[in-house]
Amino acid sequence: MELTATMVWTVGLSNLVLAVYGFTLIIGLPANILALYAFFQKVRQRSTPMDVLLLSLTISDLIFLFFLPFRMVEAANMKWTMPYFLCPLSGFIFYSVIANSTLHLTAISVERYLGVAFPIKYKLKRNPRNAVIAIVIFWMVSMAHCSVVYIMQYHNYLNPNFTDPSKRNTCYEEFSGEQLKILVPVRLELFFVFFLIPFLICCFCYIKCICILSRLSKVHAKKRYRAIGMALGTLLVFVICFMPFNISHVDGFVGGYSSKWRNYALLTSTLNACLDPFIFYFSSSALRETFKKVFQELVRRLLPHCCRSTLCCPLFNRGKSDERTQSSDDSIR
């Protein structure tokens, strides 16, 4: 059975992959752990659909970061050297989380739009249970689609000419013509389900939010800027992180192959795991407060006592006033 390789490891590519994955891990892990703590505390006290969605997306990003070292080991060795069952498992989790992230970001945009466009009616009807149901559906849909990783790895397994994947030193990089006939249409579906439709929904929701908030003179300027920041941040994540990888699906469908530049495009998708917490910053006062407390603690430990007692006093006093305004700061949601 003739197999076509979609990527050839080089020293330059290995270093690039390690640099991007390493940056994502170093920045994303502590930021998501802080976000997890903040959202978990918020959900325990008084949860809203937004809090539940943000908590779920943070957990999703942490799962992604947990499996990222497997990809780094492959890049460092420029071949797959770990037990082979980890290959389809890591790929399955890897792609499922990327797909799941777009659905979460879309649900967050819809929740923001409903809260801004119908503040009274939606506030009376919103229920965290609905967010939990949506999250379960998101995971089921993304995992069902990305199960194609397992299907491709063991497709035509009983064929005598089939090469046992465990005897190869590649992971999800070699496909036969028969495999591509199944894989390429599935990837095109992934483009529509997990990128194009979510992106259009996000564009509609956030553009409407910005238009509505710009007409409300009673909305505080900081709240308006944060809403605009979250909208632009989310749309930039779609364009920078998800668009290149999903365009490779369309390119592969048109040409009937697995694009060789697809693995380069995949690198941008990994950055989503370290960008999400900074988008959350615009959405959650609980996360903003957690970031400020951590920053203040770092300043307290690193700066001399004399500086803390004079120049930096406003910084420490500001955190106390922010606590008093936290509940009103969430009213826009």
Rank of each mutant, 00 (worst) to 15 (best):
T4P: 00
A5I: 10
M7C: 07
M7I: 15
Y21H: 14
G22D: 06
G28A: 14
I33V: 06
L34D: 11
L34R: 13
A38E: 10
A38H: 05
V43S: 06
R46L: 02
S47Y: 01
V52L: 01
S56L: 01
I63H: 09
F64D: 06
L65R: 15
P69V: 15
N77I: 00
M78R: 12
M78V: 02
T81I: 03
T81A: 05
L86N: 09
C87P: 00
C87D: 04
S90R: 15
F92L: 06
I93P: 02
Y95L: 03
T102Q: 07
L105N: 05
T106Q: 11
A107R: 13
R112H: 04
Y113E: 03
G115H: 07
V116W: 03
K121Y: 04
Y122K: 04
K123P: 00
K123Q: 04
K125L: 01
R126L: 01
N127S: 02
R129Q: 08
A131Y: 02
A131D: 00
V132P: 03
M140K: 13
H145S: 15
I151L: 11
Q153F: 00
Y154F: 14
Y157R: 08
P160A: 02
F162E: 02
D164K: 14
P165W: 03
S166G: 03
Y172C: 03
Y172R: 08
E173D: 09
G177I: 10
P185G: 02
L188V: 12
V193C: 11
I197P: 01
L200W: 07
I201C: 14
C202R: 09
C203W: 10
Y206F: 09
I207H: 14
I207K: 09
C209D: 10
I210Q: 14
R215D: 07
R215N: 06
V219Q: 08
Y225V: 02
A227N: 06
A231K: 05
L232Q: 03
L232I: 14
T234Q: 07
L236C: 11
C241E: 09
M243E: 11
D251C: 10
D251F: 11
V254Y: 14
V254W: 10
G255H: 13
G256C: 05
S259I: 01
R262I: 12
S269E: 07
S269M: 14
S269V: 05
A273I: 00
L275P: 00
F278T: 15
S284T: 06
A286R: 08
R288S: 02
T290E: 13
F291C: 12
V294D: 03
F295E: 08
E297D: 12
E297I: 00
V299E: 04
R300D: 08
R300V: 00
L302I: 10
L303P: 04
P304I: 01
H305A: 06
C307E: 08
S309I: 03
S309N: 15
L311F: 10
P314E: 08
F316P: 11
R318C: 08
S321V: 01
R324P: 00
S327G: 02
